[in-house]
């Protein structure tokens, strides 16, 4: 077990009241496993991973629960200790590579700096390693790319550079937050291929955050669906996609237009929009948009059950 998150809660104090960004999230991650986290904006998928990385530094934030990395508790760990882990054993890839890279240094310099922050190696040695890494992430001309500045690279190449940086210290855990959302599908296909390859060669465990069900179904071993700060369904890829149980998962899958076969005249759309975290309904957060809601949904929040494929829904529990 690489990562074990138990009953994680993150809330922010704001002028308008307390925002419960995540409300009781638990999950486990094994070595060389890819966990896909799906959800819309505001579902808490990014915040939960920022908490794992120890990157929530907002003084108005409260973090409760437990995050264990290889058995070691990360919640409440001093910043120095966390810094030793981050970028070394735990690495992160963000959505927009331009914000993860500084525009004033070359790609080679930035990756070498990252290596030298965690390993005692000479500059020349670090640069050699950079060239290897860039070759590994399929830069056509790694030696030349090292002297490039971020603005001289295309979006796909920048994301590859960020991935190379994330891999520089052989992380045991890689957290990727919508790494392909800003990219074209053709480039995305290459990046997904790369993530699969890296899992095989580096044995890294990967948490992959996305809103794209298609990406998850191609990449993940296990999937976690989030809505309004809670996990609503969890299961292996096959379980989740061949037998979606939560009405939200079902509706989301149903609203994606098909790429082949007959075109439906109208798409089965989900009414309404995701709720504001400031004004969550008393019962199930998906209740107001749910086609199968009944009385219990309005008063109580359904719990995510146990087992390999649980769904947080009274209807599912009933069946």
């Amino acid at each position: 077990m690489i990562l074990s998150v138990r009953d994680l809660k993150v809330s922010f104090r704001t002028n308008d009241g307390l925002v419960r960004a995540i409300d009781g999230v638990s999950f486990d991650l094994d070595e060389s496993e890819i966990l896909g986290v799906v959800g819309e904006s505001g579902s808490g998928k990014t915040v939960s991973l920022l908490a794992v990385m120890g990157l929530i530094t907002d003084p108005n934030a409260t973090i409760e629960g437990s995050i264990r990395y290889k058995g070691r508790e990360l919640v409440g760990l001093p910043a120095r200790e966390l810094r030793r882990l981050r970028g070394n054993e735990i690495a992160m890839i963000f959505q927009d590579p331009m914000t993860a890279l500084t525009p004033v240094y070359t790609i080679g310099w930035q990756i070498a700096e990252q290596i030298r922050a965690h390993r005692r190696v000479s500059k020349a040695k670090a640069m050699e390693r950079v060239e290897e890494l860039l070759a590994e992430v399929n830069f056509p001309n790694p030696h030349e790319a090292m002297s490039r500045y971020p603005h001289q690279l295309s979006g796909g190449m920048r994301q590859r550079a960020v991935i190379a940086m994330a891999l520089s210290c052989n992380p045991a855990l890689l957290v990727a937050d919508e790494p392909t959302t800003a990219l074209d599908v053709t480039v995305q296909a290459g990046i997904l291929d790369l993530v699969r390859k890296l899992r095989a060669t580096h044995k890294s465990a990967v948490v992959f955050i996305t809103h794209d069900m298609g990406v998850v179904s191609e990449l993940a071993d296990r999937v976690m669906v989030m809505y309004a700060g809670r996990v609503v369904e969890r299961g292996s890829r096959t379980e989740l996609f061949s037998d979606p149980r939560h009405p939200y998962t079902r509706a989301l899958l149903g609203s994606i237009p098909p790429l082949t076969g007959e075109k439906p005249r109208r798409l089965p759309a989900i009414p309404g929009s995701p709720p504001s975290l400031l004004r969550l309904p008393k019962g199930c957060a998906f209740g107001p948009r749910c086609p199968v809601r009944y009385e219990p949904c309005e008063t109580e929040k359904p719990a995510l059950g146990a087992g390999s494929h649980p769904a947080a829904c009274f209807r599912v529990a009933q069946a």
Binding site: P140, S154, G156, M157, V185, T186, V187, Q188, A189, G190, L192, D193, D212, M213, G214, V215, S217, E218, T238, F241, S242, L253, I256, L259
Partner: peptide
């Protein structure tokens, strides 16, 4: 290159990955 939701194990669709930008 479009990722689609497949309930069967992956590898049924042939993917052409373009090299370069």
């Amino acid at each position: 290159a479009v990722p689609v939701v497949e309930t069967t194990p992956s590898g049924t669709r042939k993917r052409i990955i373009l090299t370069g930008d």
